[in-house]
Design a protein around this nucleic acid. Structure first.
Length: 637
DNA sequence: CCCCCCCC
């Protein structure tokens, strides 16, 4: 079983029609999405023939023929059994599917499917495959609209004469260049586009002196997207004019290849004061903001810095804070934890204007985020808002409703894992890998700028096989309550080990306090099928494991010391309940010197009970990968 | 021509 290579152009041109007795086109589901993000009418699919992809609308009720409309259907292989000729939906040709059947699953995306629109890209257009030629209705495949043009060879007027899967009903107004046809050296272009994102003005200093710029994200009626950046005097001329959601004709700038580090598009536009921008009539033919959602589960596989769109619900949020940047500027920051239907959680940090515009978001808020950047902190993947991105809070539609339902059903559960969630967003490791990381540290080879510390690795599940007992050293210490200035925000407690001194407490930092607070600190033994490892747990992680705060346990401990047998029994019960518990832990190895000898200590940066639902999703993904050994497995196998 | 920085 393989995909019907080359059938996408046939489907979009209307040349490929359902025919009794003919083989059905076989396609891969790249994405499932509401037909109109935010408007909630039925479902659409992005389907791929391995070379190109198209949007397909599903007839009512048809989504039930797929194994699931969330993460489950992604990458599945389907057979199109019946469909209507292509029609234009919001400026995009779209095939309406009347009947389809699932055939199986594949591991990841097959081939390198690209947009069906004629493109100038450097890679040669895929040629029709033999299968393609053999498909009924494909007799004209040698007139593929995807033949290449050299860079810059395409003058705007050529566009009109060129056949292409963009229906001629889309014929451009005179002199308008489709964004999709902007090549890295195209000159004399004019685009008519909607502003879907707009940055603030950025001031900078470089070799040429002081400068300023701002950027807008644009989409045109064919769905082509590009970013335009205005420099110098063009900022004063056009910043106020270019209102978000407005439609404008823009020309007089230069087009250059997009640097994938800085843009999600193939080319970038830059304009100076010689550029022109004028407001154009908004006749509704240009789509609004287009989201291209990816599941949070996919973030682990994407490169850091990649720009993505996500649809998710907030399960917990820290209060927004204002931080001072290295350059002394002040900037609002709002970190929230997201979950989506893939079952994965992920941090999202909103910055600056995006944070200010959304200060009210919190647990239960559904967010559609466009153009979020994948970042990593302490080895944990997360998302940051970007200046031309979009954060849409509480969108309408079916997808948003699904997320609200997810929050209602599992929100409390997920919020408890909250910002301490271990395990999401990075590949999962086994304990043997953590042990190996520690061994490398002892060689000194792994020493990075952060000193003798290894990477934080997520292990899930690991089983707690040894805990402190009720005899000997208590599993907590008395921490100094003195307030010390924090890097940002409110002062934090000193937390150093305090010793009783007269009526109060004192600590190695020289603080004298009336009170001190118990905090957990103890070692546990963890086991998984590959290794056993001792790891240190501090207050928050230990509390996750034991289920009670250190103050409660320390009170029992002291009563026990005073001979209270009942307290002793309760203490024992608490510790026993945590034994053999399965946890997700984030472990970091550090090298230090103790009693003259170098050693490696492992501490838990996060610890939470294994989340069975997330676990199930990941196991399901593993089963699929195993099934897919070659490429595919039979349906129902 | 910016520029992915900002914070835990």
């Amino acid at each position: 079983m393989s995909l019907t290579g080359g059938c996408v152009p046939g489907l979009l041109s209307g040349e490929l029609v359902p025919q009794a007795g003919a083989p059905c086109p076989v396609l891969q589901v790249l994405q499932t999405l509401p037909a109109r993000p935010g408007a909630g009418e039925g479902w659409a699919l992005v389907l791929s023939d391995g070379e190109h992809h198209l949007r397909a609308l599903l007839a009512e009720g048809l989504h039930a023929s797929l194994p699931g409309m969330g993460a489950q259907a992604q990458h599945s292989i389907v057979e199109l059994q019946d469909w209507a000729p292509p029609a234009e939906v919001r400026g995009q040709p779209c095939v309406s599917v009347r009947a389809l059947a699932p055939l199986g699953f594949a591991q990841g995306v097959i081939g390198n499917p690209r947009s069906y629109q004629p493109s100038w890209g450097p890679a040669p257009a895929p040629l029709p495959t033999p299968e393609h030629a053999a498909m009924p209705g494909h007799g004209s495949s040698n007139t593929s609209p995807l033949q290449q043009q050299p860079y810059g060879a395409l003058a705007p007027q050529d566009n009109m004469a060129r056949s292409g899967p963009v229906p001629q009903a889309n014929a451009q107004a005179a002199g308008i260049t489709p964004i999709a046809r902007l090549g890295p050296h195209t000159q004399h272009w004019r685009v008519r586009a909607r502003v879907t994102g707009k940055s603030d003005v950025r001031h900078f200093t470089n070799a040429r002196g002081e400068g300023q710029c701002f950027s807008v994200e644009l989409v045109d009626r064919e769905g082509g997207e590009v970013k335009a950046t205005f420099f110098g005097a063009a900022v004063d001329k056009f910043f106020n004019l270019l209102a978000p959601q407005g439609v404008f004709e823009i020309s007089g700038g230069s087009v250059k290849p997009g640097n994938p580090r800085f843009t999600r598009h193939a080319v970038d536009i830059t304009l100076d004061e010689r550029g022109t921008v004028r407001a154009a009539e908004d006749d509704g033919s240009i789509p609004g903001v287009q989201f291209d959602f990816v599941p949070l589960s996919s973030l682990a596989e994407l490169a850091e810095g990649t720009s993505v769109d996500v649809a998710a619900v907030v399960v917990s949020a820290l209060p927004p804070t204002t931080i001072t940047t290295r350059t002394g500027a002040s900037r609002m920051r709002h970190a929230v934890m997201l979950v989506d239907e893939s079952g994965c959680t992920c941090r999202l940090t909103l910055w600056g204007a995006q944070a200010e515009a959304n200060v009210g978001i919190g647990a239960g808020t559904v967010l559609f985020v466009r153009n979020a950047r994948i970042t990593e902190f302490n080895g944990l993947r997360g998302l940051d808002s970007t200046d031309t991105g979009i954060v849409e809070a509480e969108p309408s539609g079916q997808r948003a409703m699904g997320l609200r339902k997810l929050f209602e059903e599992r929100g409390e559960d997920l919020a408890r894992q909250g910002l301490a969630a271990a395990g999401r967003g990075g590949p999962r490791r086994m304990l043997a890998e953590c042990a190996a990381e520690g061994a490398t540290l002892l060689t000194g080879l792994a020493e990075g700028p952060a000193g003798p510390a290894g990477r934080a690795l997520t292990v899930s599940p690991a089983t707690v096989t040894r805990l402190p007992g009720v005899e000997g050293r208590p599993p907590f210490y008395m921490a100094c309550d003195a307030e010390v200035p924090a890097a940002e925000g409110r002062p934090r407690p000193c937390k150093r080990k305090a010793t009783a001194s007269g009526r109060g407490w004192c600590c190695p930092a020289g603080h004298q306090c009336a009170t001190a607070s118990p905090r957990y600190s103890f070692q546990v033994k963890l086991a998984d099928p590959t290794a056993e490892l001792w790891a240190g747990l501090f207050d928050e992680e230990a509390r996750e494991l034991l289920g009670v705060p250190a103050a409660e346990l320390s009170a029992l401990w002291e009563s026990q010391e005073a001979g209270d047998l009942q307290a002793g029994a309760r203490l024992q019960a608490l510790l026993r309940a945590a034994a053999y518990r399965r946890v997700s832990v984030r472990l970091r190895s550090r090298r230090d010197v103790w009693e003259g000898r170098e050693r490696v200590r492992v501490t838990a940066a996060a610890c939470s009970r294994v989340d069975l639902v997330s676990e199930a999703f990941e196991m399901l993904a593993g089963v699929r990968q195993a099934c897919a050994a070659g490429a595919l497995c039979a349906a129902g196998a």
